[in-house]
Every structure is written in C-alpha cells, then in structure tokens.
Simulated assay, not measured.
Amino acid sequence: MSTLPYLRRGLLGALTIILISISLSGCERSQPATKFNETVYTFGTLVEVTLVGVEAAHARAAYNAILDDFDYMHATWHAWQPSALARINGLLKTGASFSLAPSVLPLITSSQTLSTQSEGLFNPAIGQLINLWGFHSDQRDDQQPPPAPAEIAALLESAPGMDDIVIEGLNMRGTNATLQLDFGGFAKGYAVDVAINHLRELGIENAIVNAGGDLRAIGRHADRPWRVGIRQPRGEGVFASLEIEGDESVFTSGDYERFFEYDGQRYHHIIDPRTGYPASQTRSVTVIHADGATADAAATALFVAGPQDWHRIAKQMGIKYVMLIDKQGRVHMNPAMARRIKLTNQPEILLSATL
C-alpha cells in the first residue's frame, strides 16, 4: 500500500512543475529590474504569478487584487467544505427551483457547454462518484479500499449529467437526485482566466499565472516568448518544453496528480463517467488553447477519451494543439502541436490528422 497521502504527492508534483517553469521561463543571468514574482498556495496547489515591465508598487497592488479573487473563488467553489457550491448541491437534490448568485452562473453555463462538446467526458455533475472514491478529502486515508462495484454501479445507473440542471433566468433546479457538482476539472482554468483578465484591467500586458503547472500567459517575458516546461508523467524532470506569447493557456491532466495505491493497484482521480473507474489508457494530456477554462476541461476530457478518441473530442471542443501520452508511454500529437513542442528524449511518436 501507499505510504504518502495523495494530496502531498500532488503538492510535491506542483512544486516540481513550478520549479521547472521558473527555470525555463525566468533564469537568465540578467533579470529585468521590473520583474515581479510571487507564489501562493490556493486551490490545493501552488500558484505562481510573474509580471514583467510593471512598476513595483503597481505590481504588488495587482498581485494583492488577484489574491482576493483567488480567496473568493476558492471559498465559493470548494467541493467538500462549506461553500456556495455546497449550498447549491444541497438545493439541486431537492428538485425545487432556487435563486443563483450571478457570479456562479457563468461557471455552470460554461460547464454545460463544455460537457456537451466533450460528449460528457468532462462531467462536473459526478461529484458523488468522486467522493465515493475518497477524493473529497484534504488527506485521503491510504487504508481505505476502492469503492465496491455495486456502489459504483448504482451511481452509474442514475447517470448524473450537466443536462440535469435547468436554468431559468437567475433560477435553477436539478432533475436528478444524485447530481452533485464538482468543478475540480475546471476551476483552476476558470480562476486563471479571471486573474489574467483582472491583470489586463489593471493595465498589465506581460504576465503569467501558473497554477501547479497549468497556466495562462499574456505578452512576452521581456525580449523573448515565455518558456514553459511539461513534467515527466513518470519520474521527475522535464518531458517537453514550448514557447508561448500573445495570449495562450497550457494545461495538463495527469494520473500522477492525485492518486492512491491499494494492494499494488494505482487509482487516480480522473474518473471516466462512463465506467465509474479511473480512466486507464492515458498517463497525461497537454493542450494549448486561448482560455484556461476550456483548456482545463479539455485536458480532462481528452485524458478520459484516450488514444482512440481524443482526436474527435478535441475537434468538437475547438482544441488545436494536443499531446497525449498513453499508458505505454507513446506520444500522440497532431501536427500543429508537433511543430511547437520540443521533447527532451526520443519517445515513440504517433501523429494524427490535422485538427
């Protein structure tokens, strides 16, 4: 059995990714005098904020402003502690109509759209299933076995989905008693988008917000593009790197982020809504997209889709750049991603048709 709680593993992985990103994006001998860099722990991971070309006082004020955003969103969207989302989940079970805070409505409507595009492979409505696996905890008990097949089958039979939520103006209701929202596969991306948009409103043009290796960057790192590292899905170090500039998000979903081992079997947190079990054909998926919310949801959906179906789902979700590493360690990419990414070794590469 495992001896290290999955949340601590996730934190160590996040720290590794951020250190990789720092080394690739900001370790020149001469740093610009106006570079600002701070790291905070939120959303269950380390979030690094880097601003370039901003006067020190302005940078500090902008950083404090987005910290307030993070605190609000974390308190509002937390899946298993008292929060606005917990209240919503309780009311959805009743089937009665209730009023919804305008700040939460875009999160739900965006999730509905992304869930439809992904054929339900991105499905924030399976919170009860995530909880059944023990991932609604800050520190999972390593002695806790996987759920019984009968428990999984019971939740699968009820098939909760985002189409079980009916929105009427600022009111909503649920039509499935087993519906329970969990935005774990989407919240970081949405939060990174909010942070970047807020920075832009404050006049900042060159910035990167990196949430445990999932990030969105705008502008440039002084006189060159931002450089991003993608971690090895097995072991430590950098698997690949790429450059980004303008406005792009890079998100990765991996089976190494949160997991536990029981009787020699590895169980990770990315659950296939079709089977009720962790998706088994993929080690990691990295996508590049304009906004973080879509990239975050797509990375989850394509992980579940696996090497056979990722191409179709990516096209439906409007994702142009994809790299998938399957359970054998083979790399699947579309040509657009292959032109941008630099691999640190020579894995077997399978190129798909153009998206």
Rank of each mutant, 00 (worst) to 15 (best):
L7T: 15
R9P: 01
L19Y: 05
S21R: 10
S23P: 00
L24P: 00
L24K: 15
S25L: 02
E28Y: 11
S30R: 13
P32V: 03
T34C: 04
T39R: 11
Y41N: 01
T42H: 12
T50Y: 03
A56I: 02
H58K: 15
A62F: 08
N64G: 03
F70T: 01
T76P: 00
A79C: 03
W80H: 15
Q81V: 03
S83F: 11
A84F: 06
A86F: 08
N89T: 01
L92G: 12
L100A: 04
A101Q: 09
A101F: 05
V104F: 14
S118H: 02
L121T: 10
F122T: 07
P124C: 08
A125F: 10
L129T: 08
N131R: 15
L132H: 12
D142M: 14
D142K: 00
P146E: 03
A154K: 13
P160R: 07
I165F: 03
E168I: 01
E168G: 01
A177P: 09
T178D: 10
D182F: 02
K188D: 05
Y190C: 04
Y190N: 00
A191P: 02
D193G: 13
I196E: 04
H198C: 10
L199S: 11
E201Y: 09
I208D: 08
I208V: 15
R216Y: 09
R216T: 09
I218H: 12
H221Y: 15
R234Q: 14
G237V: 05
V238W: 02
F239T: 00
V250W: 07
F259G: 02
E261S: 09
E261K: 05
D263T: 02
T275P: 12
T275N: 10
V285P: 14
T286F: 13
V287A: 14
G292E: 04
A297P: 10
H311W: 14
H311S: 15
A314Y: 12
K315G: 04
K315Y: 11
K315I: 11
M317V: 02
V331F: 04
A336N: 07
R339T: 08
L343A: 07
T344A: 13
T344P: 03
L351D: 07
S352L: 00
L355I: 15
